[in-house]
Amino acid sequence: MSDQAALIGGAADGQGAGGSVLVDPSFLWRRKLKDRIARVVLFLSASLSVFVTAAIVYILITESMSFFEVVSIWDFLTDTQWTPLFTDAHYGILPLLSATLMVSGIALLVAVPAGTVLAVYLSEYAPAKLREAIKPILELLGGVPTVVYGYFALLFVTPLLQKFMPGLNGFNMLAPGLVMGIMILPYVVSVSEDAMRAVPDTLREGAYALGFSRFHTALRVVIPGAFSGITAAYILGMSRAVGETMVVAIAAGQNPNLTLNPSEGAATMTAYIVQVSLGDLPHGSIGYQTIFAVGLTLFVITLLFNIIGFWLRRRYREVY
């Protein structure tokens, strides 16, 4: 309001002075300055994200550097034991990595078929009203805190599975894998449905005109057409599963274990970081540095998945 008053006042003054000057120049100058300041402040807020990324990379690399001065990268990548806190210390990431990939793999075995079927159903079959009702429910599924999913995996799903599989450990990779599959399902559905809906209707109508059923249209036209977007959904879902922490920290146990048997417990990379953070290792010790080395590995893996995923997503957006 004050600016408007100034504008009117300025104009009136200007006319009073002879009609040649319309606006008080100092008012215009102040206005320009305000606009400049706003622009700078907004730019700084936006560039914060660049600083955060840089800080993450910087912290992970500097802390890991001191770790890799003691442990060679070769040992880190090939040693089959991870016992950094024992007197006979081994620093092989393989057990943590294999557990991470095993749990994420199980999650994908759930999320990929279920997610694809649901996405096809939502984009090709479901009436608009039903779709609008289902999507919020899926969103709620994705909004449940991960620690609650962890509770569910350890104290509901594991006992339930043990009724059918007596050999299942209290801590195992199967239950958190299954729960994580449900957890990433909404994300996989939303990204792949997005891709399927981007396939132009003209292609669908062409298929219908040739006598295709909805199912064959989905299978032969929509899925191939949205292929890069659907792959992106799987890869981004995988990236989420790899970085997920609480479900595995709670239900998969904290014991590094190089095994391919999903009924055994095994610590993942994220679970190890949690385990070390709960104790109090002195800042600067080799044990403290291990979590940054593990974190760096995790960051590189998820970054790789994310880059591939975003690249694929961008590709389908360009096609249509």
């Binding site: 990324t53 800080a55 912290i59 989420r240 974190g295 995790l298 960051f299 998820t302 995923g309």
Partner: peptide, 20 residues
């Protein structure tokens, strides 16, 4: 960077906070 940060696992933010 904004897109990328949305995909960084939350525990990595924890490591950032711990170190920085």
């Amino acid at each position: 960077n904004v897109t990328n940060l949305a995909g960084v696992p939350s525990i990595i933010y924890g490591l950032l906070a711990l170190g920085l």
